[in-house]
Design a protein around this nucleic acid. Structure first.
Lengths: 205, 205
DNA sequence: AGATTGAACGATTTGTTGAACGTTCAGAAA
DNA sequence: TTTCTGAACGTTCAACAAATCGTTCAATCT
């Protein structure tokens, strides 16, 4: 088992190098296998297919970024408002620069988004956990009082969809995206605060 | 001039029939010209190119829909909240059914969106005019007080981007989209109402 | 004159062929 | 037995040819 995990990591490492140097489409399973000193067929004992290697790479990268994000929002002495803002600003900047830096990452993101829509859903669900935590915290401090927090988190994600894979949908520059994100967040957070005032006006419990 | 406009409409009509029957890519300029009893070359006295015919078709369709939307939101005895809701719900349902009904419309929308990004921007700008009107009206009734209304309209559009060309981004069903639109709108409108309370807390003037 | 045509041009698409690729699995190696 | 290999399979991709299409413009018509 420990053996298997090591080999898996070795494969992921080799694939990551190839993918980000030459692109996902241009690297062959044979090459990745050769880098790991094994035959192409043997890769399939560790991954169901090529796409699953890419998914694994994306998954660990995302996990690392989520760890950073968790750290960021757990800094003491911040309002819930600031936490939400910092969270989504960091997320926007991070993915923007990732996709900007090299086109290979952009290619991988596109392939995974197209061929594995479920992947994005899992990432969203993980993000929602953090958002719910933040709302619980903010409610304890009386900053805003939300009914169904899981649902509210989903709505926030919906409203910020445009900023998720920035250069995939709009070709806006980062400053313009930041300006818009700022504006939308202000509206949303004001909305959250308002629920404190006239709660139970329709929000599901 | 009156002559020219008639011919233009004739071309638009013929092209619309062809495009929605056989698709944009599969209809040739020669066919459209033949339907209008003229030579292919003559089309270019009325339109710069094939894409501009498609744009004209989309433009009049959008104009008609906007007229319906204006009518809808001018119904008396409605709160600003209801007006905003009705506006975007009608918009979501309308475009969803358009794109659902026949794949040819979907094809046309994709082509225009990809090759003529400016077109969408013009449509957005027209929509914003209506939104600003609504906000002015709502402010007069003391329902919500927004600072820079053009900017706020832009932010609302940003937050509702996901519901704009529904089946282009997400493959959600209409009921799921409606549920999400409802939730996001609630947050946003609460946000608008909140600005009445603590105005000038950062909203640009 | 201005309006219209349709043949001609270059770009894009289509059809086809051969190589390359992802994946599998019977068998070799351990 | 379990682990791994590499040739074999069907699919996909790349390159080239032919055909088609959008667009132009010199010639024609009104």
């Amino acid at each position: 088992m420990a053996e298997k995990d090591t080999v898996r990591e070795q494969i992921i490492d080799a694939a990551k190098k190839r993918f980000s140097h030459f692109g996902y489409a241009k690297t062959t399973m044979a090459e990745v296998a050769a880098d790991c000193s094994m035959s192409p067929g043997n890769l399939y004992r560790f991954f169901p297919g090529k796409l699953d290697i890419a998914e694994a790479i994306a998954s660990v990268a995302r996990e690392e970024h989520l760890k950073d994000l968790r750290k960021l929002i757990n800094e003491p002495g911040k309002s819930g408002r600031d936490r939400l803002r910092d969270f989504f600003f960091e997320e926007l900047r991070h993915t923007y620069h990732m996709l900007e830096k090299n086109p290979r990452v952009y290619e991988m993101a596109s392939v995974i988004a197209n061929e594995r829509p479920e992947f994005a859903n899992r990432m969203f669900a993980e993000e929602r956990k953090i958002l719910v935590e933040m709302m619980v915290e903010a409610e304890r401090h009386g900053e805003f009082k939300t009914g169904d927090k899981e649902f509210t988190a989903e709505m926030i994600q919906s409203a910020l969809m445009k900023f998720r894979y920035p250069q995939l949908w709009s070709k806006l520059t980062l400053p313009k995206l930041e300006r818009e994100l700022d504006g939308v967040l202000k509206l949303l957070i004001d909305g959250l605060c308002a629920q404190k005032a006239h709660h139970s006006t329709g929000q599901a419990a």
